[in-house]
Design a binder for these strands. Structure first.
Lengths: 338, 338
DNA sequence: CTGAAAGCGCTAACAC
DNA sequence: GTGTTAGCGCTTTCAG
């Protein structure tokens, strides 16, 4: 508190440190950045470090960026990711990975509004982002915003076949297969699948996975076992009758919410899970899955990994196949409903 | 695509525009920023604007910040907010509000790790943030990280009495009162309250609100009606017997998860909601509340508003009382369980 | 009405 | 080993 330096306002610059230590700014720069080939006398180094500490010097990252010409920002623009419950993990993963490599995340939520989206991208470009991660809150195909072509961009949890942009998405097929295999492993042979009525990579992918697991197990696919439902609690509840009628001993639900609805329906019929009928979900929406009675076994959507992998791809440390999206595995989460 | 300008790399600078338009950079700066007192000839202005468009010029926000000495960044450091389901709304609110005033949010999730926290704050300071919003994922008292004193900071969803730092938190008392009033308004007189066993502003605040609503309605407080429970589904489920024994016709649950558990318990007893017993929750955790059967009436935690108000306070457009935190109202969300 | 020039805080050759 | 000197892209007096 001796000098008026420390806190706010007239922040301490490198020049101040140089003056205090009786050296030049170049020298300060060298010791502050631990420059490789910079041979600095032990005494000078110490004097500088003391001055830095004494004055509470803090480098100005913006000035550094300007002179180096290369920024350490990575942009993340999302439609709803920041808002939707579990997908916030995309941000989390991206942030952790970015930090690990010395980058800082600039986040923008657009609420799916194109104008906002344009502004967000512009703002990021003006901040010299190294590149942009463009993500959606559920896996789907998108039309790439024009502005994105002005910088490196990688699509996260979405894709755009024609664009040629690298993309990172969950492996829905493997996920569907995994869910089904869990049921198979528990001894079930007649497995129903409550699929969503909404066309999407999840709808077709999970179904494909379900079929492939069945086939692998030598079980014939039975059209009657896949029952369509709206992808919510209501859908699951309403599907109860059809499930019961199908004679299935286990059911793979398109997502955890559907499973939650089915739980209610099954319960109304006096059926017990997993004794009378086994249930597995998809998404691993914590609030729901972990606390249903009994806790729901499910397959997780790898949001954190999606975000982290996205920045790795952006930074060129990993690359997406030219043929299509980079698929991230959906791991099985075992609880007590199977 | 004519010049090698447009996209990547050698991004177009103001000098390029100046040269193209046959004017000086100063002039370009003036027209680009629509400088107030800058009287520029109509023709010159047009020439510049054309050059800007033709070259795809984009101002370098970092350089601008450097020369102006004032940044447009606001930092948001959180412990888990980015990860936890509903609290992501804090980010959302902060971001929207920041943008509205021309600021950009720098987000950092610390996972509650102090070292990471220190790094995050340092990084923000190095990026010359205008100030920092420090938030937690649930309302509580905190010890303010030393580093925060180096810049303007406002606490969001947390407070530190001794610090003197402005703070914005949900009004737990009003929330508890509101929940109770909803039940009262539906004609109930014997209302139970399943409170959490964890000491916290929520625990004491909601209880105070419950009592005040009762008093206001001329109903004596009955100790036997408040049943303690762990603040989760399990707690709610386990509280069922006590609730039934209490003879209450309605119950106010400490949070939605507890209500979810209670739903299960009540159901096991063959009771119907709200016919046999009314239930109201707290938090408004969408995934749960909106989709329980019947949909759960609850009181919302104003996360979005918390974030938005936080930046308003930081920007000096609103101010917290010196006596304590700025209280944000928790609105009633009516669904079908009352 | 427009341009020249200094300077924001820092880095990066290149001297000494 | 350490200091000098140009910039980085932009804003901002101050001349003309």
């Amino acid at each position: 508190m001796s000098t008026s330096s420390g806190a706010h306002g007239g922040s301490v610059t490198m020049r101040d440190v140089a003056k205090a230590a009786g050296v030049s700014v170049a020298t300060v720069s060298h010791v502050v950045n631990d420059k490789a080939g910079a041979r600095i006398g032990e005494d000078t180094r110490l004097r500088v470090q003391e001055a830095v500490a004494a004055l509470g010097y803090r480098p100005n990252a913006l000035a550094k960026t300007l002179s180096q010409g290369t920024s350490r920002f990575i942009g993340l623009v999302t439609d709803q990711v920041a808002t939707t419950p579990f997908a916030g993990q995309i941000i989390h993963g991206a942030q952790d990975e970015a930090w690990k490599h010395g980058y800082v995340l600039l986040v923008a939520n657009t609420d799916g509004n194109e104008a906002v989206e344009g502004d967000a991208i512009a703002m990021m470009l003006e901040h010299q982002v190294h590149g942009i991660l463009y993500s959606t809150w559920y896996h789907r195909e998108i039309a790439v915003p024009e502005a994105l072509h002005q910088t490196d961009t990688v699509l996260v949890d979405c894709f755009a076949s024609e664009s040629g942009l690298p993309s990172v998405v969950p492996d829905e097929v493997q996920g569907g297969r995994t869910a089904t295999q869990e049921l198979l492993a528990a001894g079930h042979r007649r497995i129903a699948f409550i699929n969503t009525t909404t066309p999407s990579p999840a709808q077709s992918g999970r179904l494909a996975g379900y079929r492939s697991a069945l086939e692998e197990a030598g079980i014939a696919f039975d059209e009657a076992l896949v029952v369509p439902a709206s992808p919510e609690q209501e859908g699951g509840y309403d599907a109860t009758a059809a499930i019961l009628a199908s004679g299935a001993t286990a059911v793979f639900c398109h997502n955890d919410r559907v499973a939650m609805g089915l739980y209610d329906g099954l319960r109304d019929q006096g059926l017990r899970i997993p004794d009378d009928i086994a249930v597995i979900g998809f998404d691993n929406q914590e609030v729901i899955a972990a606390h249903l009675r009994p806790p729901l076994s499910t397959v997780a959507l790898p949001h954190y990994e999606l975000g982290a992998t996205g920045v790795r791809v952006l930074l060129g440390m990993e690359s997406a196949p030219t043929s299509g999206p980079l698929l991230i595995a959906c791991p099985s989460i075992r609880r007590e409903s199977v």
